[in-house]
């Protein structure tokens, strides 16, 4: 039983990482109605920027917020420069451009900062919470930050006019234009926000997985899985999805005999596909009601 509890807590801790990433994914899905395959790389690059700031002597929190600002601007810039000219291209072409961005960002990061592993500081400390040995201060901090982000996003989308305009843009761009919303800028804003949230995710994840250009590969995959399981139009679902993926992955790795460790990822993914087959819009996704 103790082992079980321990594994659940450890799962929640890694789940915090996935939840954070999933939140960023859902964010951009709201803005552009598509998954951004380069999102993990964007987060990785942001984390390197934070690392560089700290190398130059900035205190942690200054670097933290400066990175968020830079990432936001970079997100907006990517949309304006790369995607605006492709507004009328097909979804498949967009996915190819995401892949291209992935390759570019990964390669440039490796070129500037090389591929050696770097350690990244945690603002919360790495000692165990209350000396229990079950979950670390950093894990706890990460979960708390994720939950705070969730609440902020919820309030933003629910109670602000810009949030409402962004939701309208994602749901029906044509109608959004008809009420005078500047759709192009809403999409750019969505990119900026997604990049900023991704930066937070990257900076929280880096102390756990270490900083290097490929750090986000598998995390992005789990983040997608979490977002899709939770429902792509539900930030809350994404966070719950993230925690459940973390827990499932850990429990499967420990308790399913023989194949456990080796096939941890496979089992997690199989479960996800199973969930999707039973509930195609995700556990918390809104089913769109429409009359014909």
């Amino acid at each position: 039983m103790d082992l079980f509890l321990h594994q659940v807590l450890a799962g929640l801790a890694t789940g915090g990482i996935y939840a954070c990433m999933a939140l960023a994914i859902v964010m951009i899905y709201q803005a552009i109605d598509s998954l951004n395959f380069a999102q993990g790389e964007m987060a990785m690059f942001s984390t390197f920027i934070a690392w560089q700031f700290m190398q130059w002597g900035m205190p942690y929190w200054v670097a933290f917020f400066a990175t968020i600002a830079v990432s936001f601007a970079a997100g907006v810039a990517i949309e304006r420069v790369v995607f605006k000219p492709l507004r009328h291209a097909s979804l498949l072409s967009h996915i190819v451009v995401f892949i291209a961005l992935f390759a570019i960002i990964n390669s440039v990061a490796g070129f500037i900062w090389d591929f050696t592993i770097k350690s990244f500081p945690s603002p919360f400390g790495t000692q165990s919470l209350f000396g229990s040995g079950l979950i670390s201060m950093h894990d706890t901090g990460m979960i708390v930050v994720t939950l705070i982000l969730l609440v902020l996003l919820f309030a933003f989308f629910r109670y602000t006019r810009i949030g409402l305009a962004m939701r309208a843009t994602a749901e029906n761009p044509e109608s959004a234009r008809l009420v005078g919303i500047r759709v192009g800028w809403m999409v750019a804003l969505g990119w900026g926000m997604a990049a900023a949230i991704g930066a937070v995710a990257g900076m929280l994840i880096a102390p756990v997985v270490f900083l290097e250009p490929n750090m986000m590969l598998s995390i992005l995959l789990y983040g997608f899985a979490a977002a899709v399981v939770g429902g792509l139009n539900s930030p809350l679902g994404a966070v719950i999805g993230g925690f459940s993926v973390g827990v499932i992955e850990n429990l499967a790795g420990t308790f399913i005999p023989y194949v456990g460790r080796e096939l941890k990822l496979t089992i997690a993914l199989t479960l996800i596909v199973a969930v999707l087959t039973l509930k195609p819009s995700g556990l918390f996704g809104k089913v769109v009601v429409s009359r014909v």
Binding site: I99, L101, S107
Partner: peptide, 21 residues
């Protein structure tokens, strides 16, 4: 050599610009 991935990505984007379908 160092920026092979970046060059590949840029080529990919340019190709999509020139021939979106």
């Amino acid at each position: 050599k160092g920026l092979a991935g970046a060059v590949y990505g840029v080529i990919l984007i340019l190709v999509i610009y020139v021939m979106p379908s």
